[in-house]
Each structure stands twice: as structure tokens, then as C-alpha cells.
Design a protein around this nucleic acid. Sequence first.
DNA 1: CCTACCGATCGGTAGG
DNA 2: CCTACCGATCGGTAGG
Lengths: 204, 204
Amino acid sequence: MSIAQSARGAPESSSRRAILDTAARLLRSGGYHQTTLREVAEAVGIRKASLYYHFASKEEIVEAVANDGVRFVHDAVSQALDDTADAPPRKRLEAAIAAHLTALHGHGDYTSASIKAFSFGAIPAPDSVRRIRRAYEEVWRGLIAEMQAAGILSPERSAETLRYFLLGALNGSIDWQRPGRFDATELAREFTALIAPHNDGVKP
Amino acid sequence: MSIAQSARGAPESSSRRAILDTAARLLRSGGYHQTTLREVAEAVGIRKASLYYHFASKEEIVEAVANDGVRFVHDAVSQALDDTADAPPRKRLEAAIAAHLTALHGHGDYTSASIKAFSFGAIPAPDSVRRIRRAYEEVWRGLIAEMQAAGILSPERSAETLRYFLLGALNGSIDWQRPGRFDATELAREFTALIAPHNDGVKP
DNA sequence: CCTACCGATCGGTAGG
DNA sequence: CCTACCGATCGGTAGG
């Protein structure tokens, strides 16, 4: 898993990962400004100053969490698309949506931490985050183009608007997620049917 | 306009409104934690301590801004629905979406300030905000039920999921709004077509 | 990875 | 609406 290793594949200390795990959890629940390095350090079991042995600044910690978070959802969605390579287009769309929702609401805190830290301009996203995020967006650009070509999504609709619309709706689920009652599979089915309705002869 | 008056219709000092206008602008661009009372006071042209002559706390200022913001979009959408009372259902949906987007991206800062302050749990929403927000949600519940009854939106889809999906997508536009190039009318048309496609015989 | 410390800034208060 | 002030807390640094 890409999260278990830094970008260049260099070995990573378990302390560093423990810090990021904790930061991700706190960022997910509190966002950037509410998350303090004191909280992070205390939860990890070290002194605050010791964080600076591993990272140069708070920004650097948040940046690392956010990058891993986007990589995590990117990998999950790519995997879902690989797994459904031979499935009907609508199934692929549904699998991608389910994977995105699972990355957001599953046990990992990195993806939702990333979104909470940088959505609505809470804090300006560093270049590295923007770059990695853009790479992930390409997956959706490709998928939407595929769906339009397959006739699942109307080619008359702006592909960019569609993408913004869909990802905005998916990420918005952070706000109304009931921790227990969340079923990514069912929700993905519902979302897919919403933007790509079946034409099962319900209407003439 | 409801924003020009406090909830009980009591007269409101111009200073109070100046403070709220400024707070709304700063909250819109910076969110809750990044907006400081010093900034607000300086922009208004008074000393920070003087804010406490009008408000008891930072929370109270933010609460007032957020409440006005939700009232503003609520009024705008209600007005749009009244104005299109005799129009075809799809036109009504489109008008409501356009009104919501305009409230978000128009010159008023209150609505987007409200969303930025309380989305993704940036800060827990006070009871008054939750109550006013719930009243606004009722407008959309009613509208979606109307659309499902009219066959514009599929009755097979969960009305609540539809509402969450749509409002999440609309509010998400805060993130990709290009200040100049924003056309609420065109975007509303696109969004409406997306969730409520025409059946103009394009497909058999 | 620690102890000890710091300047800056926060929301808020006293008292007029 | 002001001057003056405060305790708390923030991210970060020195030096080991």
C-alpha cells in the first residue's frame, strides 16, 4: 500500500507513521486549525518538540497526510476500475463511486483528513497536494469520458461540470455520514442510478 | 430583506450590521478559525473590545452571520419558486437551483460564510443555526417530492439521498468557482439536466 | 527524542 | 465605544 511508504520508497520510521496516523485522525475530526501539534504529540506519546525531529513544520505534517490521503483514494478507485475492467460500464462507474466513498468513510482517516483540511479553502493547498490531486482527477476525467462514449452519461452534458458535480456530492457525504448506518455499496448504487438512470423501459 | 433586520424585527444599529457584513466577508474567505476579531474590528474601524458592546462572543457573531446566510438563501429560493408557481416543474427546479447558486456566489457573503463555517464540522453548529437550516431543508424536501410526483425525478430514488446529493454538489461549487466566469443560470441549466434529463425522444 | 523556553497572537475582561 | 490589560495557547527554537 502506498501509504506505508514515502513517495520515493525510502524506508520510513514507525514513529513517523505513528505521527501521521494520529495527525490524520485528528485532522479528520477537527480540521487544520483545530488540530494542534500538542494534541498530536500527546496522542502519540511523545513531547511536542520531538515532532520537529521528524517534520519541519505543522504544514509539512498536514501535507504528508493529505498526499497519502489522495493517493489512498486514487489507488482504491484505480483498483476498483481494474477489477471491473470487463464489467458493463455502469458497473464500473458504480464500483468507482463505491471505492471513493469507502476511502472517505472507511477506517482510514487520511482521505477525509485531506478533504477537510483543504476544502472550502480552509488552508491553501501546497503544490504537492495540488499535483497529486490533479492526478486523481484524471481518473475521473477518463471514467466520465468513457461513460459518455458508452452512452451511460449524456454526451451533451459538460464533462467538467459532471465531474465537479459528482465529486462535490460524494465528498459532501462527509457531512451527513452516520458512522454506523453507512453502506457504501448501497449509496453507490443510489448515486449511480441518480446520474446514470437505467432505461429499462419504465418510460416509453 | 430579512438580513436588514434582526429575527424579532427589533431595530438594528448600523454598527451592528457593519460588524456582521465585515465578519461575513472575512468568514467567507477564511472560515471560522482564520477569522479573528481583531481583523473584523480593524476592517470596521473600531477597537476589538468594542465588538463586545454589540456581541457577547465570537460565537455569537458567527451565529448571527450564519443565520442570516441561511435565511438569505432560503428567501431567495422561496421567491424563485413563487415566481415560477405556474411554470413547468423542471423550470421550477432549475429556478431553485439558480437561486441557491446565486445566493452562494452573488455579492452577499453571508450564505457562503455560513457554509464555510459549519461544513465538514469545522465548528459545531449552534442550535439556532441548525433550526434555521432545517427550515430551509424543508423547502428542498417539498420541491423534490413535487418533482418526483411530476415524474421529473424518479420516484424510485431515495428523496433524502437526492437532497443530500444535490445540495452537496451545489455547495461544493464554492470550491471551484472562478470569480469572473460564474454564470448561475447556465450552471443551473446544466445541473438540472444532469439529475432530471429531458426525455425528448433522444432515446427510443 | 527530551527539558526548557519564547515571541506572537488569540478571545475576552475591567473600568470607564 | 475607548485604553489597558490578561491568561491561555499557539507553532516553533535552543541546546543537549
